[in-house]
Design a protein around this nucleic acid. Structure first.
Lengths: 344, 344
DNA sequence: GTCTATTTTGTAACCGTTTTCAAGTGGTGT
DNA sequence: ACACCACTTGAAAACGGTTACAAAATAGAC
């Protein structure tokens, strides 16, 4: 039943060519590189195109041209304001330059991440946006074997041989801890995200610790607790911390959501923030300024970060020279949740 | 330079076939329908596949088979907990049945939505998940012309000829308003999302109004205000409402984010919730139970809704018979933000 | 007006799969 | 033995574009 009537195909570039009375090559050119075809032809072709309601078939195009104008992104979860914002920015930027985004999630599982990468590569993505630099061993090999450009986003590691764009989490965390130290606190607890397979979380913890050490402050083991990424877990951690006979007067948190949990639980247990407890977050989500008390936190320009990641890939795909390691500035935003400790 | 050495291609199904000493047809079969090939061959092929690290080329596969095992979804924005949750569920379900998801955003703009649909169809998606039933005129034609199955999610309209899955927003909103009426309120304000191009928002407003009307309550024009989807806008609306000389004792909101804004602003202005003002939300986001006072709201099983949408498409693509209109139950969750009005 | 350099256009091979169709293989019932 | 079947396998034609290459047309220079 596959009679290739050569000129009649119901649709497709050949139908357009037939209707416009030109060759398929010209139609293709009119589509991909309009300047390469004379205005008269172009007009005829364009007219044929929308007379037929022709929609180019991307897979065929990809197959033939070996390039998809599509990037892939793998994030731990989309269900997280941080990532949602980042992805939104990235997507917006990409669509402004004619690219598309294939988004997948790994659920913080490196094996799944690898699997998704394979999936995306199979899909023909031109490049990959990854979160952090903590990946499965096979992932680097996969990327190298298939010559897929990629970038690690959300971290800044100028010493590593991989492209990245993001804030220096260690330094930012250091700044956060320094803030409460400057306020006079010496009993400082840490509630961080799970560090396993999460270089961002670990970098932040490292920054917190360095600030403490530099100032000669001790961190009793029970003052550092790690929690998964939910409000409930953070609240539970806070409850534990606040019920210690010997409790901290300030808590620095691995991210804003954790800080919200600490804040909520502290108030629920009758502690007043910042009078009885200072709390510092990290990320500066929308909620942080609305909350009462509003949250002192590290502002991270998530949107910019992800957009830059897109820019990097798009530009290097275009053959332009680009900087491999880009640092995004953070800033400390002081709000109501921190104050000097009550004199004991 | 294109010498097709017929057997040697660096990679691709032909390389696998050559290495395993079989035809490309067999490799293809081993991949798509393992039972159709003898165990011995299958073993040889599989061994060749991972010896070569072969990754099938999806675009070629799509081109040839005219089916992509990929669905497209167009949401107004990803930067919104509701959609993020829905998408996450949908994606998880799809990946569990071997499908992928192409996600795009329209920014509440029908033209952009149409454009994105064209984009997705060009990409070869097998089906489309849309939000609501308020679309560009050309979209229906586009879908029909290209025979692309789709489903409208987040609404329930059994009377329309299009597949949909979601809660009955009108009924749910009615329930929400009925709740405050039952509590004894008679001065009830509405803060809704923008109704333009948003059938979900309008249905909710309709439900609120019906409840008021049925109970003989008036809705002075200044008691109904529409706001965009941000906390700041919601707070501003609340400020306006609370500063009226003649203000409502209860406010029903178009969604939880709006309710948060009202809650925050009310407290900031010295009103106590629920003593001075009752507030009802809609959606039951995570925050609603953590907030103080916690928010009375309509619980909507977002994850289930989107998963069902995926199920519908996957099943109808598989040729199975499926119900076109599926209603998802909502429930009223009564928390701390509502109470009987203070006796005047 | 001729000749060359440049720009437009067309022809057809190719991108990496799937799938139709026919051919080969081995087992069964008679 | 023979015909008949069910099951595996392979050869080759699509799928719908892009693009290398060649041919044709146009422009510019003398």
């Amino acid at each position: 039943m596959r009679l290739t009537n050569a000129k009649s195909m119901k649709q497709g570039i050949r139908a357009v060519a037939a209707r416009a009375g030109v060759s398929t090559a010209s139609v293709s050119r009119a589509l991909n590189n309009p300047d390469a075809v004379s205005p008269s032809l172009r007009a005829r072709i364009e007219q044929a195109i929308d007379a037929l309601g022709y929609i180019p078939h991307a897979p065929a195009r990809i197959l033939s041209s070996r390039r998809s104008r599509t990037l892939g992104a793998i994030v731990p979860t989309i269900d997280n304001t941080m990532f949602a914002r980042g992805i939104a920015s990235l997507q917006q930027y990409l669509s402004s330059v004619g690219y598309m985004l294939f988004l997948t999630t790994s659920g913080y599982d490196l094996d799944v991440e690898l699997q998704q990468a394979r999936n995306l590569i199979s899909r023909g993505v031109d490049g990959l946006v990854l979160r952090g630099d903590c990946h499965h061993e096979g992932l680097r090999k996969l990327l190298a074997d298939n010559a897929v450009p990629f970038i690690n986003v959300g971290i800044y590691q100028p010493d590593r041989p991989y492209p990245c764009v993001g804030t220096n989490n260690e330094a930012a965390a250091h700044r956060a801890a320094a803030h409460v130290i400057e306020l006079g606190h010496s009993r400082i607890g840490i509630v961080s995200a799970l560090q396993r397979n999460n270089d961002r979380a670990s970098a932040r913890v490292a920054g917190f610790r360095r600030a403490l050490t530099e100032n000669g402050l001790a961190l009793p083991p029970q003052w550092h607790v790690e929690v998964p990424y939910t409000l409930d877990d953070a609240r539970e951690a806070a409850r534990y911390l606040l019920n210690l006979k010997d409790r901290p007067t300030a808590v620095v948190c691995g991210n804003d959501v954790i800080a919200y949990g600490v804040l909520l639980e502290a108030e629920r247990d009758g502690f007043s923030v910042p009078r009885d407890l200072s709390v510092v977050g990290f990320d500066d989500l929308d909620w942080s300024r609305h909350l009462r008390p509003s949250l002192t936190t590290i502002h991270v320009p998530t949107g910019e970060t992800w957009q830059r990641a897109g820019e990097y890939l798009v530009r290097s795909l275009a053959g332009e020279q680009t900087i491999m390691h880009r640092e995004i500035d953070f800033s400390l935003v002081v709000r109501e949740s921190t104050a000097s400790p009550a004199k004991s």
